[in-house]
Structures are given as structure tokens and as C-alpha cells.
Design a protein around this nucleic acid. Structure first.
Lengths: 135, 135
DNA sequence: CTCTTTGACTTTATTTTCGAAAGGAGTTAA
DNA sequence: TTAACTCCTTTCGAAAATAAAGTCAAAGAG
């Protein structure tokens, strides 16, 4: 993991569909050399996958939210199995140290979907809702 | 934006370095047809970019945090210009409705970097720190 | 000091993919 | 019917990826 590898990760972060030839040029390598490095970085688990940045609003999900989860006592399992079933709304469930137990990153297609979700969620945990206005 | 387009976005979300030929096969199209659709989706702004999922811990950033930002009064500009200068640590700055004004998503390479950042941050805003233990 | 090994790179050659162009099928409307 | 449009496939030359072979420098052993 030298400077060239870091540059490769930087370049792929900003555009992962770049060709190996172009990537090579940007880090002063030939295409095969760049491809070999990328493969090694993948094998080391530093690159876990290739994805897109999608505009959620244009995909019909105009509500982007963070939900702090508060669970009394030590029975986290009912909550955890609940959110596993709700994967279509949930982007990430962070276990955190601090005020609350978890921080849920979610998106919803409508107010109704959000409302329904919160009603269900309330059976398992208390929450504090934050709606993202802007990035 | 029909079912095929949604499938394309799904496939590219899970692997954006897939070839147009393979993408086409997965959505029952030829390579040129798939490429044409992807281009349209890009032009519509639904796909904003192509990126990687990098393992932050293996990149040497073992502290992943959320920081709730509280600003008294209406002078957000000093804070906003401060975080623009701190881009190397900051993944996202969400403007939110709810308890706090902003939610900062950050990663730090060390406790010292975090400490230094918080000392600086405190000149512009009050905060509440949450450290991510697990995803 | 010389020989060998190793690792990272380049060069070359082959296979695969891309991307532009042309054309066909289905739909809509005059 | 014909024209215009959309969306697709087929075709083919250009570009990129990939595999294989060769180069070079550093490190270690005899």
C-alpha cells in the first residue's frame, strides 16, 4: 500500500468506470501494471466493491433520514431482526457509542412509508428522527 | 425510468465495473442497448457518478464518527467555511431538521487527529460526538 | 564477486469489448 | 397507407483488456 496504490484508490473513488489504460496514465503506469495493482488491492480487501452514486430523489425516494435508536435494557435482538426485514428502506445501521445505541440511515419514497415504518419501529425501540434537508 | 432501468441501477450499484455486455445479459438486452440506457440514465442525473466501497480501517482510518453540530444564532458561515477546509476528514455534511443543525459524517486516522479536529470545531459550534463501533 | 531468485514493470500479441452506423419491428398519428 | 418516432439488433472497425514473455534492479546465497 504505497503512494501509487493510494492514488489508484483516489482515482477509482472519483470514477470507478475509468479504463485501466487511463488509470495507468494517471498514476504513470501501463494498463497491465495498473490492472495488476487493482487486483492486489481487491485481494487485500481494501476495495470491497464498485458502486454508483445515485440521486435518491430522482429515484423516487425524496425522504432521506437519520434515526437515532434508543433501546432500554439489553434486548437488542427484536430490533435487529426487525430492521433486517426492512432492508428496502435502510441504507446503514451503525452501532455507535454516544447518546443512542444505533444510528439508522434510511430513505423513504413517501411520508406514508416513513410513518408506517416508525409505527412498526416503535414496538422495538424509542427513536429520534432527523430529516436531511441538504447534503 | 422503467423496470429495466431500475434493474440496471441495481446491477451497477452492486458492481459498477461490469462490462456493458454482461450488464446487457443481466437485463436481457444487447450491449449497445444497455450502454444507450446507461447513458440516458446518466444524462437524467439519476446516476451521479461511479465509485468504490473502500475499507476505511484497512486504509488507516479506524475512527468512523458522526458529529451532531449545534450552532447558536444564525451565523452558520464560519462553521461552513471551516468544514470546507477540513475535507480530508469529512465524508458528508448533512443539513438536517431535528435536534441539531447539521450531522457530520467523518473518519479520522487517529485519536489525535480527532482531538485536534474537535478543538478547532469548537471555535465555531457545539457538538455531540458518536463513534461508530460497527456497521 | 558471481549466480540465482524475486518482484514489479514493460512489451507484444491475442481476445474481448466498445461504440458508431445501418437497419428492422412496433407504435402512433396524419 | 405513409411518415415519424422509439427502441432494439446486427455489423464492423477501433480501442481496451488480458495473457504471456521479456527486462531490469534489488536482495540473498555460495
Amino acid at each position: 500500500m504505497d503512494q501509487t496504490d493510494k492514488k489508484i484508490i483516489e482515482e477509482l473513488s472519483s470514477n470507478s468506470r475509468i479504463t485501466m489504460k487511463e488509470l495507468g496514465e494517471r498514476v504513470h503506469l501501463t494498463a497491465p501494471a495498473a490492472a495488476a495493482r487493482v487486483q492486489k488491492i481487491e485481494e487485500n480487501g481494501v476495495i470491497e466493491g464498485y458502486s454508483i452514486k445515485a440521486n435518491q430523489a430522482k429515484l423516487g425516494c425524496f425522504m432521506f433520514t437519520f434515526i437515532n435508536i434508543y433501546i432500554e435494557g439489553t434486548h437488542h435482538l427484536p430490533y435487529l431482526s426487525f430492521i433486517q426485514k426492512q432492508e428496502k428502506y435502510i441504507i446503514n445501521n451503525y452501532k455507535i457509542s454516544g447518546d443512542s445505541c444505533y444510528l439508522l440511515e434510511c430513505r423513504f419514497p413517501s411520508n406514508e412509508a416513513l410513518n408506517q415504518f416508525l409505527l412498526e419501529l416503535n414496538k422495538y425501540a424509542n427513536y429520534k428522527l432527523s430529516i436531511v434537508i441538504n447534503k
